[in-house]
């Protein structure tokens, strides 16, 4: 049954019977506590990614690797990041993996990618709160592609460490990014304040208030300063 399901993946297309793949779903549940069985399944899923299976077949595999993928899956997924048809589903698996190798693969892909694929990887690094990529993200705040710059700001907002806040403060941003940078700075300040770092938070709020920001940001920064005073 499982063998037949893996065979089906090679030509699996939209409109085909989803039930034909159920044996793979069942095997994943059945091997929940059997490491060897899981390893075997993961190896077979990886082999599909490295084959000429259809896009939909590979999408199915990425959905499964999101749930069970280990370091062993990372090279096959990383190889898909530059492919416009597969980059999202590769991240779909990599973004959720606790493996450090998954984060490393996303970081290493960053300088090699452009356009939407790079924007996607930036977002995934943010979701993973990968502190080690703060400098790389900071360098993208002034990227000539406005969407890349905005995405980098959003990712730094998700990481929201003191280092992320510093990177945002010293950015020479793309003209499309100041609002995203202000929003990200506010996020950092909120987290710093919640962690008891009132001085760092206050510095961010004061900086944001200084340069005639949009009214919404100014109000948020003023409220932040009041919150610092109350702490």
């Amino acid at each position: 049954m499982v063998d037949k399901a893996f065979e089906t993946l090679q030509s699996y297309d939209w409109g085909d019977d989803r039930g034909a793949l159920q044996p793979i779903d069942d095997a994943l549940v059945a091997t929940q506590h059997h490491a060897a069985g899981r390893k075997d399944l993961e190896d077979r899923l990886i082999a599909v990614l490295q084959s000429n299976a259809t896009r939909n077949g590979k999408d199915f595999v990425c959905r499964k690797l999101k749930v069970i993928g280990t370091e062993a899956s990372v090279p096959a997924l990383a190889a898909m990041l530059s492919d416009a048809n597969h980059t999202h589903m590769a991240r779909y698996a990599l973004e959720s993996m606790p493996s450090a190798a998954a984060g490393r693969a996303l970081r290493e892909a960053l300088p090699k990618l452009t356009g939407d694929a790079r924007v996607g990887v930036i977002g995934s690094l943010g979701v993973r709160q990968d502190e080690s990529c703060v400098a790389a993200l900071a360098s993208l705040l002034g990227d000539e592609d406005g969407l890349t710059a905005i995405s980098a700001a959003r990712a730094l907002a998700a990481i929201r460490t003191a280092e992320a806040a510093k990177a945002l403060a010293s950015a020479k941003p793309h003209r499309a990014a100041p609002r995203a940078i202000a929003d990200a700075s506010l996020a950092c300040a909120e987290t710093l304040l919640a962690a008891g770092n009132k001085i760092a938070a206050l510095a961010i709020y004061k900086r944001l208030s200084k340069y005639d920001p949009p009214k919404l940001v100014k109000i948020a920064a003023t409220r932040g300063m009041l919150a610092c005073a109350a702490k």
Partner: peptide, 14 residues
Amino acid sequence: NRYLDRARREPWQL
């Protein structure tokens, strides 16, 4: 924890 979120299709981000 793998089920907390799903990667969003580029260029979408929260």
